[in-house]
């Protein structure tokens, strides 16, 4: 076994007492087919994935829930599409009933154009859901003050966005993400805006405990290969963070000694 695999093997992500070998949480949104999604999920190595709750349709072929059960991937239902705390709480209750989990990724968005979280409704919903015994994974703006507020209300994990959902713009405010991480005592999961592998590696280098992404894989030209790329990116970023990067310097610093050089005429 190589050093790398030993390190990552002994470094599980722990959320609410549950251990995960992978620090990549892959959402299921955006995949054109259930078969393709399954292959991408497996390639990514994810052990936890998000799903949305929608009206049951008998016409639907295949069950996403069954696919996840069959592959041993734990399910994290979300409240995507909810604009108010009231809708989010009801959706979470339905998810708890349907999927038999008290974990919920809480999304309360302000409008369809930005898909940005509505901070006021988010705080309200977090309070209500924590009261009702939910383990709240709060999808939040990259606001260190709000993130801490959510933790203090009892959120199980805080999930700041890198950039708006589906944009692939990466991490627009790395400083804020670092600030959130430095003040948090619950897991911080970078969620939304990831475009490619280096964005996920950066999230981990900034100190995030995990990365959540969906469309970066499901809408990539080759989702299976991109899933695998993210698997490695998250591991690389985590290792680099733990290894301790060199300080940034203004001027060059030679890595070869100046002494003992040959002299030429």
């Amino acid at each position: 076994m190589t050093t790398t695999s030993i390190r990552t093997h002994n470094d599980p992500l722990v959320i609410d007492g549950v251990e995960f070998g992978s620090r990549l949480i892959m959402g299921t949104g955006g995949a054109p087919s259930l078969d393709g999604l399954g292959a991408a999920l497996i390639a990514s190595g994810t052990e936890l994935t998000t799903v949305a709750m929608r009206r049951y349709s008998p016409a639907e072929t295949g069950s996403l829930f069954q696919l996840l059960l069959d592959n041993g991937i734990r399910v994290l239902p979300n409240t995507a599409g909810c604009f108010t705390a009231k809708d989010a709480v009801l959706t979470a209750e339905l998810a708890r009933e349907a999927l038999e989990t008290d974990w919920v990724k809480l999304e309360v968005i302000a409008d369809e154009h930005t898909l940005l979280p509505d901070a006021v409704e988010l705080v309200d919903a977090t309070e209500q859901l924590v009261d009702r015994g939910f383990k709240v994974f709060a999808y939040t703006n990259d606001d260190p003050v709000l993130a801490l507020r959510l933790e203090n209300l009892g959120a199980t994990a805080v999930m700041p966005l890198g950039s708006p959902i589906g944009t692939g713009l990466g991490i627009l405010n790395p400083h804020n993400i670092e600030l959130i991480v430095s003040r948090a005592s619950v897991p911080v999961v970078l969620d939304a805006g990831i475009g490619t592998a280096s964005d996920a590696a950066l999230a981990m280098e900034l100190g995030c405990d995990a990365v959540l992404l969906a469309t970066a894989v499901t809408r990539a030209q080759n989702p299976v290969q991109m899933g695998e790329a993210f698997k490695h990116a998250v591991v690389a970023g985590r290792l680099a963070k733990q290894a301790g990067r060199i300080p940034r310097r203004e001027h060059a610093l030679a890595s070869s000694a100046m002494e003992g050089r040959a002299e030429f005429l």
Binding site: G27, T28, G29, G30, A31, L37, T50, V51, A52, M53, R54, R55, Y56, E60, S63, L64, F65, L68, V75, P77, N78, A80, L94, A95, A98, L99, I165, G166, A192, L212, L213, A214, T215
Partner: peptide, 10 residues
Amino acid sequence: LEIVTAVQGG
């Protein structure tokens, strides 16, 4: 009545 299930979603 609303009957819901898990579907693909980020």
